Every structure is written in C-alpha cells, then in structure tokens.
Amino acid sequence: MKSALGRVLVGIGVTAALGATAACGGQGTDEKDSGSKKPAAKATPAAQEGLKPLTEAQLTKAAITKADVKGYRVGNTPDDEIPEVSVPAKPATCQAVADMFLLGTEPDATARVSRSLTSLTQTDGTLLRMGLLAQKEADAKKVVADLRTQSQECNSYEHTDYKYTGVKPLKDPGLGDESVSYTMTSDIEGEKFPVTYSVVRSGSTLVVFYAMNALGGKAPEVPAAVMEAQVTKLEKTV
C-alpha cells in the first residue's frame, strides 16, 4: 500500500507529466590579463557558472546505501514519485519551496537520483527521503538562496490542489558549502502531516533530505547521521 506521501506524489506526477524541459550549458574560460592598464576582462557567463553538473552515473555512485547508514533500509524512489516538471504554486513567491517538495528546482536539475530510507529500529512514523540533484554551480547557489529567502517569507501556499501552512526556517545544519533547513505542515487528502527539509549544497550538487511524520504531531528531524553520511560520501566520490 502506498504511503500518503506516495499517493500525493503519484497524483502530482500525472499532472507534471504533461511537459518537460531540460537545462543545458557549456564551460568557458577567462581571458588572461595582458599586463597593460586596460580593464580586466569580465568573466563570461559560462565561467561564472563555476563547476559543471555531475552525471547521473556519478550521482548514483555517490548515493548512500544501507552499508553507509547502519540501521536503515535504503531503496530507490519510484520514478513516478519524482516528477520532472514544475507545477505553479500560489503565491508564486513560494515556488522554490513548492518545487522542492517534488525534488524540483528552477533552473531544472540536469540529473537526479533519489533514495527512500526506512529505519529498522524506530516506530515513530517518520518517512525519510534523500535526493541528489545535479546543477551548474551558479544554479545550485541560486536554489539555496531562494529556499533561504522563501522559508523566511512564505508562510503558506497552495500547490496542485493541496495546502501547505506554517512554513518557517529551522537551524542551519552547517554541512557542505552552505545549507538551509525549514519545516511546514502539509494537508494531504484532509490529513495534516508535519514535514522537514534540509538542503545542502556541495559544489554544484544539491543534497536534499526530507522527513515526514506520517502519524502527525510535531515536526520530525532529519537524522544528523544520515545527512553527514550522505554529504561525506558525495564529497569523497566526486
């Protein structure tokens, strides 16, 4: 039987499957200073993007397995639960937060992998997801900046006929090159579930951690051990 999260993501996936876009880009080089007093050449847009996106194969290699996180079963997230297309949110000032619910970003990730984690010991109803999103470095920085701003300014929004309230920032987990964390309450098929997100940027890759309390109650925590294991493995792999 699908979880509440699975049911809503499948529904959203049907809507999102109506279209798709792909991001692409190149890498440029800066001109060297000739030694004259002419103004230094400006970096090209491609150079300003910094690190290139990782490939899907690299993301897959960097994704945690059960060997990396003791006490958890780790499985692939079904493709129909990670739609490829952004669905408009109301108000639009909450779009980045809404997109991240589906592991989406603007600009689009060039590759994504996702894993579902199940604790072998805890019975508190917490569902865990992890996603690795390949971006150009400049785009990854923009996504984190948008999430940081919107988690502070966006209190509630509607997305694919579902409501999300109580959006508020949480303590920065302090991982990778930069990170942001926030919580909200989702109203799915009349049931309210507290959810927590932590998003870490490591170079050009976004590492997304999602926790939902399927039993309701207080906002769940994303286990620090899981976050640290994934970020460490990513940084050692690439």
Rank of each mutant, 00 (worst) to 15 (best):
E31G: 13
E31L: 15
S34V: 00
S34N: 12
S34F: 07
S34G: 03
G35Y: 08
G35D: 07
A40Y: 00
A41R: 03
A41W: 00
K42F: 04
K42N: 11
K42C: 07
A43L: 15
T44A: 13
T44N: 07
T44R: 07
P45F: 07
P45I: 10
A46F: 01
A46D: 14
A47H: 14
Q48D: 12
Q48M: 14
E49T: 11
L51H: 12
L51E: 14
L51C: 05
L51N: 12
K52I: 07
K52C: 08
P53T: 00
L54G: 02
L54A: 13
T55D: 07
E56H: 09
A57P: 03
T60P: 05
K61S: 12
K61Y: 01
A62G: 04
A62E: 06
A62N: 04
A63L: 13
I64W: 08
T65V: 05
K66C: 05
A67W: 01
D68H: 10
D68W: 04
V69M: 03
K70S: 15
K70Y: 02
G71W: 02
G71M: 02
G71D: 01
V74L: 03
G75M: 06
T77G: 01
D79Q: 14
D80T: 12
D80N: 13
D80Q: 08
E81P: 01
I82G: 00
P83H: 07
P83Q: 07
V85G: 05
S86N: 14
P88K: 13
A89I: 02
A89G: 05
K90L: 14
P91D: 11
P91A: 12
A92K: 07
A92G: 01
T93H: 10
C94K: 03
A96E: 03
V97D: 03
D99K: 07
D99I: 04
M100N: 14
F101T: 10
L102A: 08
L103D: 13
G104T: 09
E106Q: 15
P107Y: 10
D108F: 06
A109D: 11
A109Q: 12
T110S: 13
T110Q: 15
T110H: 06
T110G: 06
A111R: 10
A111S: 11
A111L: 09
R112C: 00
R112I: 03
R112S: 12
S114W: 00
S114G: 13
R115E: 09
S116N: 14
S116G: 10
L117V: 08
